[in-house]
Design a protein around this nucleic acid. Sequence first.
DNA 1: GCCCGTATTGAAACACGTTTCACTGGGGAA
DNA 2: TTCCCCAGTGAAACGTGTTTCAATACGGGC
Lengths: 198, 198
Amino acid sequence: MEERARRIVETAVELAEEGGFEAVRLRDVASHAGVALGTLYRRFRSKEDLLIAAFELETADLERRVAQRPPRGDDASERVRAFFGMATRGLIRRPNLARALLKAHAAGDPQLAKRTAAFHERLHDMVIAALRGARRVEAVPSEAERLLARALTRVWFSLLLGWAGGLHGQSTVIDEMGDCAELLVLGALSKDRSQRAP
Amino acid sequence: MEERARRIVETAVELAEEGGFEAVRLRDVASHAGVALGTLYRRFRSKEDLLIAAFELETADLERRVAQRPPRGDDASERVRAFFGMATRGLIRRPNLARALLKAHAAGDPQLAKRTAAFHERLHDMVIAALRGARRVEAVPSEAERLLARALTRVWFSLLLGWAGGLHGQSTVIDEMGDCAELLVLGALSKDRSQRAP
DNA sequence: GCCCGTATTGAAACACGTTTCACTGGGGAA
DNA sequence: TTCCCCAGTGAAACGTGTTTCAATACGGGC
């Protein structure tokens, strides 16, 4: 990302940290970043676009943290639980920012579908690495792994949205994510077994 | 709901069917429903509030359909799959409306948390009935059933949001929901077995 | 029939995302 | 150096969600 664009995104992150989604007033973002409103709109299609870009920065951060300290555990479900625990705490550490990013993500502008899909891919890779207990995904994932990763991230997003909407607290997100990880991993094992020996 | 409020919601539904979320301009809703803008705002806190009310109407519709034709299948996962198939098709039958309702739901205004929670409860009840193969939920649900129902509806919402955001089509929603239902139900069975005989 | 409190109305105003446009300044091509 | 192109600028305008407010209509109690 080019310098000017990065400054814009960083400004948006600062404002979001302070006051959440509504505090990211694009006029303010532009003036704090020292650019004109038109320049902001040349780089970003919309407010959502801008916040999705911010979400991508945060995800890169998560990737770094995961690379430095890969989620550990004796079995796949524990490692997955550890991974989502890291991810959840990392996000919720700055609640206003998290809510803003989630809101932009959940709005689901079809114009940003490609970016959103790429975003999910990055999460899936981290989940699959955690499932395998590997530092990085080397072998191409099996269909079962992909399904599992999609299911897990879907549950996670719903939980985060529930948190953002005030339906429950951070601990619910982490606890319930752990329970679901256990169910899904058990289910995948069980299915695998029944398919090998039908 | 009182007559005036119902007329407002129905008008919103009509506009949403035609042109989605943006087509629900509150000035238009008010004038088409024959009330002043202020009256609309006396009944509904916001555009989201209005569309959540519309979502509740649609859910009541789903409840009626499920009561008339309970999801059938030889095991729990097939019945759950059948239920979400019904629900998905019922919603996506009117894509513009569905996207509008989902967008309002996903915005997750904390002021509407209570309503949203009640909404989820209704879904969970239907899911648990499907799990049991019962017409209605008679016995109080076990914790395992609740967990399963929450996990399933969470996956479903994420899938719907993905559909609404153009990430994938209706068939992906239905197919992947089926796959996840299988995994989760298998996982729950497997966990149950290991807990009974550890 | 009269009075009062409350719901409703109509219209205006405000906030903010988004668009538009004429103007400027700087960097590369000739 | 001169010219051209175009990203950047500043300001205004627009649309729509939301708020406000004075004026009005209505329905129940006296």
